[in-house]
Nucleic acid binder design. Structure first.
Lengths: 339, 339
DNA sequence: TTGTACGCGTTATCAA
DNA sequence: TTGATAACGCGTACAA
């Protein structure tokens, strides 16, 4: 290494970091030589010595989902700005894989961990290494309240309430719901928000217009098939994500129902497709990138000791209702980019 | 550490790895103790000693794009299976950021690097640390032939040829093209494939029906606005991605043109939206996950020394043309999931 | 302003 | 079958 320059390792180390105690001329000399021979300090050795890897771990269910990839993008943006690497694994919604991933992350000695929980996960001991060693651990979006960590999510109850409220305001009278897996807190809250909005308007709650599923496109179609054949079919639907909302909408149209005049539809997430589809889908704007950024900021604040509080906090983002054509009677079917 | 067990560090290290030279009973004893005290070996120290991090770096333009996130997903799937971590950064299409990212990756001593080039990048010296040290370096999808590395991509020429050929076969006679930035090899090839198909059928090539842009949704709209107002407007369009194809298609419909009867449309990528939009978009199936997997396999083969050849190889995936309703005259507008 | 010595937690090597 | 030792490359404390 650069000791072939006639100077000690200490000096090289310090010179490259512009340490105050090193002479200007030496710094120049060392940097020049380093550039010449393409020397770059070994971050691994530095990590070992400093007990700090400058890496943040991220565990998500599936990387290639619009929401998740945006979440990651936000995390990477912040981490990269502060000189941190991002190490990613996908649990594929498997509890077992998530367990392994947490262990890998711990063995890699990441300085902090951000997790969006696997669908299957309903126990949390595998996070113990982080909890017990007091390593920063933040849950993002898919969180659980059965474990005491920092959490960043959206106000799902409020969003669902807004969405349902909007449909009521538009004059729809039998509003159905495509609900997600109730094991996940977020889908519980969306159901609750929906139910509460109905009750607040003294509208009857009918389990017959609620359809539970994993909210895939096909689930949306199935939901439509099921609910639209009820004796008392819904005249509007609030879906817990855009994907299923669109499945529902397209099936309903194929059955000859007119959207939004006969059936109103509201989704959740503001996936790119929601503003491209016709009619454009009314939905909830879900600030995925912002959630990622916030989660990263919390982790980095703790890593750098900036964060004052030790007690875990829950950050809940307010969402916005994006009113488009699928839920406003008399809207044109195609046309102007309203959002 | 577990030497509080009355045994040497060497033995612990070996026992946890089921080394053949360690007695069964000792192995059991050590593992039990390790589990008890939550001991996990420090991967950083191991990396330093072994000069191997078990980490693969990935540099992409934007994480939150359907194609890219699928690419990453494929990479992660393979790496994770073989016990490798994946470190990700996004260049945001900036040459400068990509430069920094490469340096970070090198400093992190990743065992290999997978890159999908930034749009801006037109020089390649920043990859020298990897090239000169003979570290595995693979370009995926957005590659350059100005630098000699392994490459994994799709046969863009062939795909474009197929797409154009299909439109010709459907009876369209003035086929336009939404072309991408010609600096990138992939968009050059798509243009070439398009041109060659026309020539092979003795159809005239008219620069007036070719529109160059960055292929955003708005670019698709602009392209439609421009081309459809030409004296000799195109009666079909082959777009270099789905996003712009859909912008084009929707603008054309708003102008009163019927798709596919008056204007045929073919996109590229098979983004999820392409099969949801009505009419469903004929497009090129782009095996993003497969490309990611292949790129990861190449890197890992080199890392483990399995790979025989030293000379860089180029893997070119064949694509499939997915014929849907947007390019087949007489197709129903909505309806059945043909893909 | 610069250098020496040591240790971070592993693992390869050699010895027992 | 197990252990002692050194080394990976850096950063810190202390000495010069």
């Amino acid at each position: 290494m650069a000791r072939a320059l006639g100077v000690s390792a200490t000096t090289v180390s310090r010179a490259l970091k512009d340490h105050y105690s090193i002479g200007k001329s030496t710094i120049r000399k060392v940097k020049k030589k380093a550039a010449e021979m393409g020397y770059e300090p070994n971050a691994i050795a530095s990590s070992l010595r400093k007990k700090k890897t400058n890496a943040i771990g991220v565990i998500v269910s599936h990387i290639n989902r619009p929401f998740i990839s945006s979440l990651i993008s936000g995390i990477e943006a912040v981490c990269s700005r502060y000189g941190y690497n991002v190490i990613i694994t996908q649990s594929l919604d498997s509890y077992k894989k998530e367990r392994e991933d947490v262990k890998t992350m711990f063995n890699s000695r990441v300085d902090g961990l951000i997790v969006s929980l696997a669908a299957e996960t309903d126990r949390y001991e595998h996070f113990d290494p982080f909890i017990k060693n007091n390593y920063p651990l933040v849950f993002a979006d898919r969180v659980s309240f059965e474990i005491d960590t920092d959490k960043v999510l959206v106000d799902n109850f409020d969003a669902a309430y807004m969405a349902t409220n909007h449909l009521i305001g538009q004059g729809y009278r039998r509003i159905g719901h495509l609900a997600g897996v109730q094991q996940r807190h977020m889908y519980q809250k969306r159901l609750e928000g929906y139910l509460t909005a109905l009750r607040d308007h003294r509208m009857p709650v009918d389990e017959n217009v609620i359809h539970y599923s994993k909210l895939s496109y096909e689930d949306g179609i199935n939901g439509a098939e099921t609910l639209l054949n009820r004796d008392l079919r819904p005249d509007a639907i609030f879906a817990s994500n855009d994907t299923s909302a669109i499945g529902f909408m397209q099936y309903a149209e194929e059955c000859g129902y007119s959207i939004p005049d006969e059936i109103g539809v509201v989704g959740f997430n503001n996936d790119p497709v929601s503003s491209i589809i016709r009619p454009q889908l009314t939905t909830i704007d879900h600030p995925a990138v912002e959630i990622g950024k916030k989660a990263a900021e919390i982790v980095l604040d703790k890593v750098s000791g900036k964060s004052q509080t030790q007690i875990p906090q829950t950050i809940s983002f307010k969402t916005k209702l994006l009113i488009r054509n699928s839920s406003v009677k008399g809207s044109p079917r195609g046309g102007s980019n309203a959002s």
